[in-house]
Simulated assay, not measured.
Amino acid sequence: MAESYLPEFEGFFQDEANCVCADCGAADPRWASTNLGAVVCIECSGVHRNLGVHITKMRSVVLDDWESEMLEAFLAKGNAVVNAEYEAEVPEGWIKPGPDASRAARTDWISAKYANKAFVPGNETLPRTEAENAELAARGASEETAAGGLTAMQEYIGTVAVELLEGKDLVACDVSGKSDPYVKFSLGAQQLKSKIKKKSLNPVWGETFMFCVPHFGAELHLDVMDWDKLSADDSMGSASVAITEEMETEGGHSVWVDLNNTKSGSIHLRLTYTSLVH
């Protein structure tokens, strides 16, 4: 039998949407993201904590004290409101985890949903392929045994925040002598995409993307593309960056990455690694 929630939440849990986890649908969620306004199960709450308090702040609806202003703001939202915003446009191929989902599947979904706002309109998140979902499922299956010295609860050793700052001397792909560049990032099965910068060879983005890191040496791949309205997008070059311990520094690790398979161009990134292994 589920633990009773605090009396302040009686009306909140009369809403059916709040009687299941916002992220996996498990019954009787008893953990709350105070700033987002959703309730989640204990399994998903662990993933929320790993994202950091700058994204989601967890508190129990059973045991913890709630300040009046925090409680009022939280009760004004709820799972239906939160999911209407953060799951508004889920691209083809993305699979929301269920109550029995693996840690890897939960981490993948929750990171994309909240840290990267991947399902919020305008973020142009890439669809998922069957092969990518198969890779994620394989990672989840490996949780049942220790792998590389990590237990199931340590499927990832950390997270890396990737700040896409700017590009320099990118190649011109259009007859106007300009390009409409954007960047596709991938780390394992995780894929994210930046906004398009119209008519620029020296674009400034100022966007941040969050990825889960399975081990040091894992490579973050980036493909710079030129957006075309009437034809397939053109490649403007690619590069890879290995995730290292050097990135676990205050202020992050700033690097200009030269693009391969192109005449010119480089991308300025700042990468900040946060360990989940203690």
Rank of each mutant, 00 (worst) to 15 (best):
E166N: 06
D174Q: 15
L51E: 01
A232I: 07
V171Q: 04
D169N: 12
D174A: 10
V160A: 00
W227G: 03
E245G: 01
L269Q: 01
G140Y: 00
S254K: 10
V40T: 05
H215E: 09
E130L: 07
K77S: 11
T262D: 07
A84F: 11
V255L: 11
P121A: 12
T262M: 03
W256S: 04
S186D: 06
A147M: 11
E16L: 10
G25L: 08
Q190E: 14
E250D: 15
S179D: 01
E87K: 08
Y5G: 12
G237N: 06
G78Y: 14
G251N: 09
E124Q: 09
S4C: 05
V160K: 01
K199Q: 15
R139Q: 14
A131L: 09
A146I: 11
S238I: 07
G37A: 03
A73L: 12
V175Q: 09
E69Q: 14
T107M: 11
F13A: 08
R139K: 13
P214K: 10
V171E: 11
R49I: 12
T274K: 11
E69R: 08
E72R: 13
P97F: 13
W109A: 05
D65I: 03
T272N: 06
Y86T: 04
C173Y: 07
V171G: 01
Q154W: 09
L150V: 11
T272H: 05
K168P: 00
T125Y: 09
L150K: 14
V277E: 07
G140I: 01
S45G: 10
A118H: 02
E163F: 11
S142L: 14
A161L: 12
A118N: 02
G11S: 07
Y86N: 06
D174M: 12
G167W: 00
K96I: 14
R30Q: 15
A112L: 11
L276E: 00
S176R: 06
L165V: 11
H54C: 04
L222I: 14
P121M: 15
Y5W: 14
L75P: 00
K77V: 03
W66Y: 09
T244F: 00
D23A: 09
A38T: 04
S231F: 13
S235Q: 08
V40P: 01
L126C: 06
V62P: 03
D234N: 12
T249G: 02
F74E: 01
G251H: 07
N261C: 07
V82K: 05
S68G: 07
L269M: 04
R49G: 04
D108N: 15
F74D: 02
E144F: 13
A137H: 02
G237C: 09
V162G: 00
N35A: 06
D100W: 10
G252A: 05
D234Y: 14
G167H: 00
A147S: 14
A17R: 03
I110T: 02
T159V: 03
W94H: 15
L201F: 06
S238R: 11
R106I: 12
S4N: 15
W66I: 08
T262A: 04
P7E: 08
F209D: 00
D108E: 09
V82G: 09
N79K: 04
A118R: 00
A88G: 05
A131M: 02
G251S: 06
G167K: 02
A141D: 12
G177Y: 09
A76V: 15
S194V: 05
H268W: 10
S142V: 13
G206A: 11
M1N: 10
A218T: 10
Y86L: 13
D174P: 03
V62Q: 13
Y114H: 04
